[in-house]
Design a binder for these strands. Structure first.
Length: 818
RNA sequence: GCCGCCGUGGUGGAAUGGUAUACACGGGGGACUUAAAAUCCCUGCUCAUUACGAGCGUGCUGGUUCGACUCCAGCCGGCGGCACCA
């Protein structure tokens, strides 16, 4: 053995041996004890892995190795989420086709993953931008289309004038484009949507069945935004018909519908507020108000999305000159418009109950509108009372509790046919159309009359054309392709045109966990083999960043549920357990290319090797916390590895008389408590404390004259998931015939070994530690107490005082209370 | 503003209501060495230095408890999410 441990030599040696032995290949059909460990697949934007990638893929590989050694048939795949904007932008800038730059990046990243030494089975990788993959993205679209979950509608969409592209709501932050920061415009366009809203309730219910962080569940609940209440129709008082009695014959009642979560406060509704954009405004507003209303609307339009939502300022609004009738009180109440009411939430109209809603209260104070208290319990002179209470000033509701009043009023509304119970969700349908090049083409064609027809499955993959300009024009780049148009006419007939939008990349990533599970049957015939799906799904452990809590993780769940309904899969939820890794920052700032503060791990990997770098990342702190990156401290991990090397070297080279000496009790106890600690910590992804436990064990072993072979072997096994290459190297020194440390079973903890002859009892006086004593494990309480009192430093404190109470905690401590 | 998470040495961080600061990094001191590197040992603060000594210490103020970093209440500070959601 060499004097010093040489990571670069050893790591290459074992990477080669693993590959030759095909150690990490997995036969999906034959696995007896399947464990699906999935880490969110990377986007191949840069050509190299950065520190964040290492932090995501290194420790999770360690976790998977741990699971494998525990006897699971672990499937840990990795692939590439390759469609998307950066490759397209790169193409725009340099003229390099995305196909080419993406393939190069993928090759580079794979090389680096191999250098990391992960246990990926590279025969099962995937790339969402390859036709073999995106044919299934298109297949999924067709399924959605056939089941009426895909539809097209004109919608005002967020349009980024700089990226010349449409953005999803979640891609606009504070009215700015998430990617480039340009202010987003509203632009009407024909867009494809998927009806995720049909699944709102199930997406909510499913959360209760999964082992996910509560925080993430809460974010999803928030995102789905369920509110229970009622819709109520308010009749609009027809002023025109009153003044022109001739037209009374044609008079039809006009209604405005509101949604409220507090129908019980209907008697307190003293005005209505519509969104400025509400179509009814033009219909019911008297002529003389048009000027003012128009002016107000212009003012609202001028405000950026940001200003409008900034708020907490004084609310603004204007009376439109019309009245509605409160169906409960039969009073005439004024109709206002105000920018705090949003056209795309609820019905775009609210009944204002200023006494019991903070916003309405504030609005009413500004414009001196009537405030009527209808729930007892607050002081409405000072503030709105939004809690529950008993109804007052509410005729037949008086005296009822809020929940009783709600039931009662809803029943009344339904009887009168002017309202009904309604559950509303904030979740909106998923806009999947993108006017971009680098994505999966939507498999739709249009006949000469403009009607949409699906491209049938036999024509999949519906290839992405290559004869295009990538320059953004605000139109889909595919429109420029002659080949695409020709292909469509050839198959469907003259005058037929292809859909030129591509799909959101979140569609690609909504089912990739199924595509990893491919075999001969599912390679090109079906999206997933039912037997494999049944066997491997749901994913046992899913690891990825918390930034995906509300988009990817909801879309993927929706798609899985839909496939369940289509009879394609047997589970409704794709990810049984979810864990988020923390974020690695650089001097407190998120690393990003644009900021130029990305830390390149390669020099450190070069200098210290993959094991040390990985272990250092794991030792930094709890995995879920992430942290600020700095390489101070990596030397500590390096020292640890060298010390490990040294004890194995010493054992190997020791004279025969010292080899395999009897195990000391002390070592046995430490060894077994370490087994326990490391096992529990690895299970919880508490890598930092698992490592410190191994460091403690090493300290004990270093003090021993000689160490038994068995102890050394166990040490190598415990270290294996954390430092795979070093572990193989030291394992080799201890195993007679050739075998891999990763084929060894994980050691089990023997609780009988940890039982000691003596125990240490801490002696406190008034809760302060004054001494500690060693007693026999079998010692009686009375003897222990007596011995404790004998301690000089205890006596000093007990002298001349009255003992009030004595607390004895079995095997731990004594507290004398004076 | 609302919701959630978190405040522990110079630093990263440990602690089922039971010895606060494990395991490391850095600084300081010491051992080894002609010297340096490497390695090993000691090191929270204050007062004592006769100690196997006392006091203070987990953001702040209280509370529960024999005993609180841990539980409860109220503040202060930081981070993340949502943004007038009717």
């Amino acid at each position: 053995m060499t004097e010093q441990y040489q990571p670069s030599v050893v790591e290459r040696k074992w990477q080669k041996k693993w590959e030759e032995a095909n150690l990490y290949a997995i036969e999906l059909e034959k696995a007896k004890n399947p464990y699906y460990c999935l880490v969110m697949f990377p986007y191949p934007s840069g050509a190299r892995l950065h520190v964040g990638h290492w932090f995501q893929y290194g420790p999770t590989d360690s976790f998977a190795r741990f699971k494998k050694m525990q006897g699971n048939d672990v499937f840990l795949p990795v692939g590439f989420d390759a469609f998307g904007l950066p490759a397209e932008n790169y193409a725009i800038k340099t003229g390099t086709p995305p196909t080419k730059s993406t393939a190069e990046n993928v090759q580079n990243m794979m090389k680096q993953f191999k250098r990391m030494g992960c246990m990926y089975d590279w025969s099962k990788t995937l790339n969402t931008s390859e036709p073999e993959y995106y044919r299934w993205t298109q297949w999924l679209f067709l399924q959605m289309y056939q089941k009426n979950l895909a539809y097209k509608k004109e919608a005002k969409v967020n349009f980024c004038p700089s990226c010349q592209t449409v953005l999803a709501n979640e891609q606009c932050q504070d009215g700015m484009c998430e990617r480039c920061g340009t202010e987003v415009e509203q632009k009407p366009m024909q867009q494809w949507f998927w009806k995720i809203t049909d699944y709102a309730q199930r997406l909510l219910d499913g959360l209760d069945t999964m082992a996910w962080p509560e925080k993430t569940k809460l974010m999803q609940r928030n995102w789905i935004g369920k509110s229970e209440g009622a819709t109520i129709k308010f009749e609009i008082k027809n002023q025109k018909s009153e003044t022109h009695k001739k037209f009374e014959v044609n008079k039809t009642k006009t209604f405005v519908e509101v949604f409220t979560t507090r129908p019980d406060t209907l008697f307190g509704a003293t005005y209505l507020v519509l969104a400025p954009e509400h179509p009814l405004v033009d219909e019911v507003m008297p002529k003389e108000h048009e000027g003012a209303v128009h002016a107000y609307r212009e003012e609202v339009k001028k405000k950026s999305e940001m200003e409008r939502t900034e708020l907490n300022k004084t609310k603004t609004g204007i009376w439109i000159g019309a009245y509605a009738i409160n169906p409960a009180t039969e009073e005439e109440i004024p109709i206002w418009i105000a920018d705090y009411v949003l056209i795309n939430y609820g019905t775009g109209a609210v009944m204002a109950v200023p006494a019991h809603d903070e916003r309405d209260y504030e609005f009413a104070s500004v414009y001196a509108l009537t405030v009527r208290e209808v729930v007892k319990g607050g002081n409405i002179k000072d503030a709105a009372f939004t809690e529950e209470g008993s109804a007052i000033n509410s005729d037949f509701l008086n005296g009822l509790s809020t929940s009783e009043a709600q039931k009662r009023i809803v029943a009344w509304l339904e009887d009168e046919e002017i309202g009904r119970q309604k559950i509303h969700y904030r979740l909106r349908d998923w806009l999947i159309s993108r006017q971009r090049y680098w994505g999966a083409p939507i498999p739709i064609v249009y006949d000469p009359q403009g009607n949409a027809h699906p491209v049938s499955e036999e024509h999949l993959p519906w290839l992405l054309p290559t004869d295009v300009e990538w320059k953004p024009t605000g139109e889909s780049p595919l429109k420029a392709s002659k080949e695409f148009k020709k292909r469509t006419e050839k198959i469907f007939g003259k005058g037929w045109t292809p859909e030129c939008d591509t799909m959101d990349t979140f569609v690609c990533s909504s089912f990739y966990y199924l595509r990893f599970l491919t075999n001969a049957h599912s390679q090109s015939k079906r999206v997933i083999d039912p037997a494999l799906e049944k066997k491997w799904m749901p994913v046992d452990m899913y690891i990825g960043g918390p930034e995906h809590a509300c988009m990817h993780l909801i879309y993927a769940r929706f798609v899985m549920m839909a496939l369940y309904d289509f009879g394609i899969v047997s589970h409704e939820e794709p990810f049984q357990k979810l864990v988020h890794q923390g974020l690695i920052t650089n001097q407190g700032a998120k690393m990003s290319k644009s900021k130029g503060n990305i830390v390149d791990p390669d020099p450190l990997v070069e200098k210290y090797g993959s094991d040390i770098f990985r272990m250092y990342l794991m030792f930094m702190g709890p995995y879920g916390d992430g942290g600020d990156f700095s390489d101070t401290g990596i030397r500590g991990v390096e020292r640890f590895m060298q010390r490990v090397w040294k004890i194995f070297k010493k054992a190997k080279e020791a004279p025969a008389s010292l080899q395999g000496a009897a195990k000391s009790k002390k070592v046995q106890i430490k060894l077994h408590s370490t087994i326990k600690k490391v096992t529990e910590d690895m299970e919880k992804l508490h890598f930092n404390t698992a490592i410190s436990a191994l460091m403690e064990l090493l300290h004990v072993l270093e003090k021993e004259e000689s160490i038994s072979k068995e102890t050394l072997k166990t040490f190598a096994i415990l270290l294996a998931p954390i430092a795979p290459h070093l572990a193989e190297e030291i394992w080799e020194t201890q195993s007679a015939q050739h075998s891999f440390v990763f084929q060894q079973p994980w050691p089990s903890f023997d609780s009988t070994i940890v039982i000691t002859d003596t125990m240490t009892i801490v002696v406190q006086v008034n809760g302060k530690m004054r001494a500690s004593i060693e007693v026999d494990s079998g010692a009686k309480k009375a003897d222990i107490l007596a011995k404790a009192k004998e301690q000089p430093n205890v006596q000093k404190w007990l002298e001349g005082k009255n003992m009030k109470k004595t607390v004895y905690v079995q095997g731990r401590l004594i507290n004398f209370v004076l």
